[in-house]
């Protein structure tokens, strides 16, 4: 009953921070908390509880230490769910995964995010601008609404 319309009208996002430099994290929080951007007017609400969430926003290059926790959090989100990779780190590992001196790139990185979780939306930028994050969230909502389950 009202499946699509209700999914379009109320979306809860959860932010998980998986290493990286905090820049994307602050910009996501900026989207939600700053009245200047105010993502809630687009019917997207921030939550910290995976049981309440629909979209999982992941920032950072998924470090090995955080990977099990991230997977567990993903599992506890009830279906239907989407994962969005925010920032270059989550998309391709950025400097931590691609740059390296004599000893090679970082061995702590388990990511990028596609290796760990199925990614539905990618928001590029280092860090992405708040406008990009809002438009990505808005474009992910129709996908979520049309999902089975």
């Amino acid at each position: 009953m009202f499946k699509e319309v209700s999914r379009k009208n109320a979306v809860h996002v959860m932010l998980v921070y998986s290493g990286g430099c905090n820049g994307c994290d602050i910009e996501v929080v900026n989207c939600v908390l700053s009245p200047y951007y105010d993502i809630e007017q687009y019917k997207v609400m921030l939550t910290w509880n995976p049981r309440e969430a629909d979209i999982l926003l992941v920032t950072g290059p998924v470090l090995k230490r955080i990977e099990p926790a991230l997977k567990k959090i993903y599992e506890s989100i009830p279906d239907p769910k989407l994962v969005a990779a925010v920032g270059s780190c989550a998309i391709n590992g950025n400097v931590f995964f691609n740059l390296g001196g004599d000893l090679g790139p970082s061995e702590e990185v388990a990511g990028p995010l596609d290796k760990v979780l199925p990614v539905a939306a990618k928001i590029p930028g280092c860090p992405p601008r708040p406008e990009d994050i809002i438009s990505a969230a808005a474009s992910a909502i129709p996908i979520l609404a049309e999902m089975e389950v």
């Binding site: 009953m1 009208n9 109320a10 009830p78 239907p80 389950v149």
Partner: peptide, 10 residues
């Protein structure tokens, strides 16, 4: 809408 959405989850 949130309530209806939660009801439509698995």
């Amino acid at each position: 809408w949130s309530i209806l959405k939660f009801w439509n989850k698995k």
